[in-house]
Design a protein around this nucleic acid. Sequence first.
DNA 1: CCTACCGATCGGTAGG
DNA 2: CCTACCGATCGGTAGG
Lengths: 208, 208
Amino acid sequence: MTQSGADGAAVGQSGTTRTREDVVLAAGRLFAKRGFHGTSMRDLGEELGMLGSSLYSHVQGKNELLVEVIGRGAGMFNQVVIDAYAAGGSARDRLRRLVHGHVITVVANIDEARTFLFEARFLPAKERAQIVAMRDDYERAYRETIEAGIAEGSFTPNLDPGLTAIFVLSVLNALIRWYRPSGERSAEEIATEIGRFVASGILAEGVR
Amino acid sequence: MTQSGADGAAVGQSGTTRTREDVVLAAGRLFAKRGFHGTSMRDLGEELGMLGSSLYSHVQGKNELLVEVIGRGAGMFNQVVIDAYAAGGSARDRLRRLVHGHVITVVANIDEARTFLFEARFLPAKERAQIVAMRDDYERAYRETIEAGIAEGSFTPNLDPGLTAIFVLSVLNALIRWYRPSGERSAEEIATEIGRFVASGILAEGVR
DNA sequence: CCTACCGATCGGTAGG
DNA sequence: CCTACCGATCGGTAGG
């Protein structure tokens, strides 16, 4: 009898030695599906075709995995902001890039995004504080962009920029709740539809 | 030494016998803050000034508490839909009532709303299926209302009703993430701002 | 609502 | 990556 994945568990690639990368990715999958506290090290070992205790040759502990998965999520979103600012253009262009980049990123890294948004409260105090700060920065980028859009005349002047930033991010973050890779709409289509909703709302022209 | 709440734990009303209602409310508080799997029966007992094992004279088990808390959340949201439909009026009026009722309900029952939206996946299979069905009904009410609004000419005809329902609900459901009772805006103000955002978006008039 | 307890499972370690 | 194990904690029960 071989030692790997012969017992029917959902194993990535059986017959191969697992790397730390495999462990982190599998942790993202399980944390996203069952939650951090709903995932045991034994569950995670089973997902990888090994014993829970064997994971400790790859990582120091369960918390480290949560920190790593959420750190990756945070890094991705941070990069979206950097890219959107680096591209230049009007505030309205920048908001379009922020929205588009957010959708693409969530769709391509759904497990990290879910863990980031659902499990961050279970991070150790120090790392939790860092993630909260990062999230504040992210929200600030949206607020600044909305303020700049008002200043340039693209956006309605009587908007509350802080609240509006929250509303836009609400639509974006909810993606982790309803997006399914098997769904009929592509990431591009979703980004376009969200952009349209955020821009114009639902009221017909001329109605008030 | 007395038997209740003399050891510094956060107890509701010390010196009084707790009821099943107290237990369910405390469970909502802890499930909302630490998650279902992050809350032990001993934690819950401590919150109420009793031992974890004593809770079993009020409820049959931990799962029953999750079912009860989420069931209350589901019932509240269901009532909002019933009231909004019963009030009659145009589709646009109905959407206004749905949004207003949702905000008021979340603000007044934040723990149940959080548990409903974050912990439903940990429900036993049968109850989870019921809650998913209820959530589908809720979404359908929004979709129908948007379709009716398009038909009556209030809403933009090129809207995708299903996707738009999701977007509106995204803004509403995100309330459980950012709302703080100590915040500066009242539930009424929040409902008004969300209504404005959903109705008109952020683009300035005449801009396209 | 408490005392006293149960078997199961948890995160994690020593040593190979 | 496994064997063999640790102390702590889990949900829950019997009996009062």
